[in-house]
Every structure is written in C-alpha cells, then in structure tokens.
Design a protein around this nucleic acid. Structure first.
Lengths: 151, 151
DNA sequence: TTCTTTATTAGTAATCATTACTATTATTAA
DNA sequence: TTAATAATAGTAATGATTACTAATAAAGAA
C-alpha cells in the first residue's frame, strides 16, 4: 500500500507550518500542550488533536524528533541530527549537549553482545548553572508536580 | 516531617514480598500489569493499585529501579547498581549491558558545560540475535501496538 | 476562476497507564 | 489480646495521547 508520505500528498496547512516554525525557533524542547497554548493565540479554533497529528506527521517525515525522557509526556525537537541531552534534576530544563556522536560506544556493545546496534540514546542528569547556584545559597527545594502546559 | 521510610514503619505484607521476589528472579524487566497478572494466580483478590503502590514503595526504599524508555509505560528492575540497557527494536526485549559505568562521559560534559553532572542514562537500540536472524530470513515485519499485560 | 477530490481541521469521545480515594483488613508492637 | 494504623481491594479520577466524524480548505484539473 502506498502511503501519503510516499505519494507526497501532504498539504501545506497554516497550522502545520506554524508548528514547525515554532519548533525551529525554539531551544526549549516544547511539549504538545505548550505548542497548543502558544498557537491558540493566533488560531483561535486550534485543536489539541491537530497539534498532536501534525507533530506525528512532522516526525514521520523526518522534520522533527520526538523526545521522551520517561516523564509521562513527549517533547519535540527540530534538531534532527544525532545529539545528546542534559536534564536539570531541579528545574527540569533540557539542554542540547554538543559533543560529537560516539559511535565507539555502539562498537563496544557489538563486540560484547553480537547484537546489531543501530543507535544509542544518552541523557545526562544533574544541576544546571542556575540551579547549582541556588543550591549553594541553600534555597528551599521546590517539588515538581504534574501540570499541563509545560514549556 | 518524619516519613514512614525514616521511621521504618513499612509492614511486611505477602503482596509486597512476592512482588519483590518476582523482580529479583526475573531478567525481563517486567511491567506493572505483567506482575499483576502473574501474581493474580496466587492472590485472587490482588488489585492493580496494590502492585503500583508497592512498586513505588520498593523504589523509594531503593530495592528496585523504575525504568522508563519512553514507551508510555514503566518497567521495573531489581538490579539496582548502575548499568546500561539494550532494547531490540523488533521484539522490544530489554537486555542488561554488562560494561562498567563510564564516569568519563560525565567528566566530559562537566568540562563542556560547567554543569554539575550526577548521572547519565545510556540505552542502545538495534536487533538482538534472534531478530537479526529473522531479518536475514526476510521474514514479515510485525508491527507492535499498545497492549495490556506486556512482559 | 471554478470545480472536484480528499487531506486536514475542530470538536469531542475514547484509551491506557497510573494515581487517588475509601471502607475494610491485616500487620505490628505493646 | 488489643489498639493503632499501614496496607489492601475495589473503584473512580487524572492526564497524555489517539480515534472518530462532520465540516473545511488545500491543490491540481478543467
């Protein structure tokens, strides 16, 4: 069966364009509901389902990546070349880590297991500069809880 | 406020013991609902909420780890020393990768960013031995879909 | 431009993993 | 044995995401 992707029959909707725009011009690895809230200002009738559907299509066409760090919700990234991430355990902000992809890690596991290794995912955890300073000042620990409309 | 954990006031229920037993004697990184189904045979009135609550407690007391690979559900592991994982992209099976923790990766990111790096998570993707062979035999690609009661 | 086709949308309902709530039960220490 | 209260079973709620559907709007053809 020939898919839409293969037939290149995707249509260029204003909504899809703006969602991609937002991701290209963002470094904060937005969530679906953050994008929804942001674009709701321009598209008064925007539906959250539309955001999710377009994120899926953009992902399927290789224009964005879906990032999931086991938090219960996905983040999206228009940087689609292999790179690593850092998550601040205090403020939960996500940073791109600009060290070149380490293929030698794959090689090591290939030697060890004999499996065919295609890729790996590497995420660092710790405290970013801002939160490192806050900790020093002995500030109170603010507990995170699940909330809609995260950036 | 003094927590139960600090007061050491957890009670030793049959359910909690069995859940830990199951995890200690398993290499398949079970999900909550797999554990639930398995133990339902012994505890006819077992509740899924009980499984989740005990998994949380076992995690909080450091007896197990919660693993989340961004699949929408968690897996649990009684191996609580730092190690890496491999996920077969075809059969979704998870393997422990027995290479020693690479603290030098943390050091590299510390030098690059100045952040305080506390840990990292490294997951490899590819094809396990079984699925590698299947691919060679040009077998049909079976699409995965969300189902309850996964192992 | 107008017409036709159909991908896409908004709106809403459903799904699924997980958490919250509550009356009852069972563990633990006195 | 008893009193205190963690833990349980059962059920309802939550939150992210997906599915469904009638109406709308791209995009190519006429």
């Amino acid at each position: 069966m020939i898919t839409n992707k293969e037939k290149n029959l995707y249509r260029n909707t204003k909504q899809r364009q703006k969602i991609l725009d937002l991701l290209v011009n963002s470094k904060s690895h937005p969530t679906a509901d953050w994008i929804y809230l942001k674009l709701k200002k321009k598209f008064k009738n925007l539906s959250l389902g539309t955001v999710y559907r377009n994120l899926r299509i953009l992902k399927e066409t290789g224009q964005i990546w879906e990032l999931n760090f086991g938090t219960g919700f996905s983040r999206f990234d228009a940087v689609v070349h292999s790179h690593y991430h850092f998550i601040c355990s205090s403020c939960q902000k996500i940073y791109d880590i600009k060290i070149p992809p380490m293929r030698e890690l794959d090689d090591r596991v290939i030697q060890l297991t004999g499996f065919r290794i295609l890729s790996h995912r590497l995420v660092f955890f710790g405290l970013c500069d801002v939160c490192k300073l806050k900790k020093k000042k002995n500030s109170k620990n603010v507990k995170n809880h699940r909330t809609q409309y995260r950036s």
